[in-house]
């Protein structure tokens, strides 16, 4: 990927896009779940509220460079999702610092935010606005979205009548309608049938050529090995290894099998 940058800028082959410096995230969990105000008030009076600290990330340092396709692997609960949240501005780290040098386009769980009663067309604009785009930005890519999702016949039907495949296609088309500077993918590459998957992969490749930085989380190790420049293996909130995909996957498999 680095040659793309050299062609463009001529200098500084490696530019940081995402930097994490000693990042920790602590969730404060009450030792018992207190779900109601009544309980809270009673416990507060009895001074019986105990808070347990759960560290989802522990002092993580990481630099992802411009144009890189970077993957995260690790067991469930290792801290992968928390890492994505910290990077996409959803969570502010408890300590440490996150610096991002580009606009982030998170790929929302496909179809999250869709309303079943609204038509495909209406949902395209609603979903686009949730992702932070303006009306003009959405109008500019609308035809492309319809074409890419292959839904021109059904675009004015309510999406409750869509199959799950149609739903996912429309969601993917909206989320990737603009060339993002940073694209975040959370376990959602298996969209639709094989032909559509090929289209998705082509779109991802064209993003890479345009210089998009991609950060992806997946349990599909073979997919990651094929797509990523580097992988990081996270376990219990710490990065155990960052290297080229083949080596990291070998180490991860060695540990888990």
């Amino acid at each position: 990927m680095s040659d793309v940058i050299e062609e463009k800028g001529g200098f500084a082959a490696v530019q940081p896009m995402i930097q994490l410096e000693n990042v920790s995230v602590d969730y404060r969990l009450p030792s018992e779940r207190i779900g109601t105000f009544k309980e809270y008030a009673i416990r507060k009076l009895q001074r019986k509220i105990r808070i347990n600290k759960f560290s989802a990330l522990k002092g993580v340092d990481l630099q992802i460079n411009r144009g890189e396709v970077f993957g995260l692997i690790g067991n469930n609960g290792a801290g992968k999702s928390t890492m994505l949240k910290v990077i996409s501005k959803v969570l502010k780290p408890t300590t440490g610092r996150v610096v991002i040098y580009g606009k982030i386009a998170p790929l929302l769980e496909l179809g999250a935010g869709f309303h079943p009663e609204l038509s495909g067309r209406e949902n395209v604009f609603l979903n686009g606005s949730l992702l932070g785009y303006s009306r003009a930005e959405m109008e500019a890519v609308f035809d492309d979205i319809v074409e890419f999702s292959e839904l021109s016949q059904f675009i004015d039907s309510p999406v409750r009548a869509y199959s799950s495949g149609m739903f996912a296609r429309l969601g993917f088309a909206v989320a990737t309608a603009h060339v993002p500077e940073i694209l975040i993918l959370d376990e959602i590459l298996s969209v639709g049938d094989e032909a559509f998957q090929r289209k998705c992969n082509n779109r991802m490749k064209s993003f890479q050529q345009a210089g998009t930085t991609v950060l992806m989380v997946s349990h599909a190790l073979d997919t990651l090995e094929g797509m990523c420049d580097r992988l990081a293996w996270i376990d219990h909130g710490k990065i155990l290894k960052i290297d080229e995909p083949r080596k990291v996957i070998a180490a991860y498999r060695g540990e888990n099998w």
Partner: peptide
């Protein structure tokens, strides 16, 4: 496909990021 522009300044820096009454108002406008 056009190549993306580079930002020399951070778009987001958690160290200087704080949600305040004013910043939220600006975001609301966006």
């Amino acid at each position: 496909m056009t190549l993306l522009a580079t930002h020399s300044k951070p778009v987001y820096d958690s160290a200087s990021y704080r949600v305040s009454a004013i910043s939220e108002l600006r975001e609301l406008g966006k």
